[in-house]
């Protein structure tokens, strides 16, 4: 279980990016974090990844405090961030340097197959389209079989069609080993398609505003009325989170219990 206990972050320049964010995320759960810009979404993700340290509170994964990048936690960024001097196959195998060459080759081949890029194994990253590159990034992060996979707006730079395609693909891959997914997004559609739980954050300072459980069976039909219903709920919560006149009483759901309707 991934436990976030009153995680807060103040940057050295005095910006108070995140305040007392608490959540418990079960193994295999998919959580989407959504909110206006400057609500500390990426800050939170970077703290969980161990790339930045939280100034207050703790991040623990299976009772291990996370203060630096950890083998059980993988991350996918907004940009693919492939290493341009490595072939697609070597990029995917980048995190497997402890394995023998043969074992690595086999895992990489399977991953390539799984993301549908077997024919691109020896291509350079520059030869890939944006969607293909992001698929390689997903494969690179999943191949070491992390327990938690963090995604920081992973599909926001892609066109709508490719984005849908990759969302479905991500779910498909997730189904293989069922890691915990924690996804930061701007896209309400994406949050509702993927997540078991949507955490809506409010800015200045960033904190948890509302939690919405999406209990829709997978695969989810993007055109069903239920789906629309959840989308509307998330949108409403987002609107309220950005309205500065919302009375504090309305934010009672920060305790994490008022998400039933």
């Amino acid at each position: 279980m991934l436990a976030l206990d009153r995680v807060g972050k103040t940057y050295p320049n005095g910006v108070h990016a995140l305040e007392r964010f608490s959540a418990n995320i079960k193994l295999g759960e998919i959580v989407a974090i959504i909110g206006g810009s400057g609500c500390g979404k990426s800050t939170l993700l970077r703290a969980i990844a161990g790339l930045d340290r939280a100034t207050t509170g703790t991040v623990t994964l299976d009772d291990i405090a996370i203060t630096a990048p950890h083998a059980k936690i993988g991350i996918i960024f907004q940009e693919p961030r492939l290493l341009p001097w490595l072939s697609v196959a070597d990029n995917i195998g980048f995190g497997l340097s402890e394995l023998s060459a043969a074992a690595r080759r086999e895992k990489v081949a399977r991953a390539l197959d799984r993301v549908g890029l077997a024919d691109k194994a020896n291509a350079w990253p520059r030869e890939l389209s944006g969607g293909q590159a992001q698929r390689v990034a997903i494969a690179r992060a999943l191949v070491p079989q992390p327990e938690v996979l963090l995604l920081d707006e992973p599909f926001s730079a892609l066109d709508a069609f490719t984005r849908r395609d990759l969302q479905d693909h991500l779910l498909d891959l997730w189904n293989d080993t069922r890691p915990t997914l924690m996804l930061v997004t701007h896209d309400v559609d994406e949050a509702v398609v993927l997540a078991d739980r949507v955490l809506v954050m409010r800015p200045r300072p960033g904190r948890l505003f509302e939690e919405i459980k999406v209990n829709l069976a997978r695969p989810r039909d993007r055109n069903s009325p239920h789906f629309d219903n959840f989308k509307r709920r998330v949108l409403t919560a987002l609107d309220r989170s950005l309205d500065r006149n919302v009375p504090d009483a309305d934010a009672k759901s920060t305790t994490g219990e008022a998400m039933w309707w």
Binding site: P69, H70, L83, F94, G95
Partner: peptide, 11 residues
């Protein structure tokens, strides 16, 4: 920095 961060995430 972004590429260096990839190296960091793989420890």
């Amino acid at each position: 920095r972004k590429i260096v961060e990839v190296g960091r995430t793989f420890r």
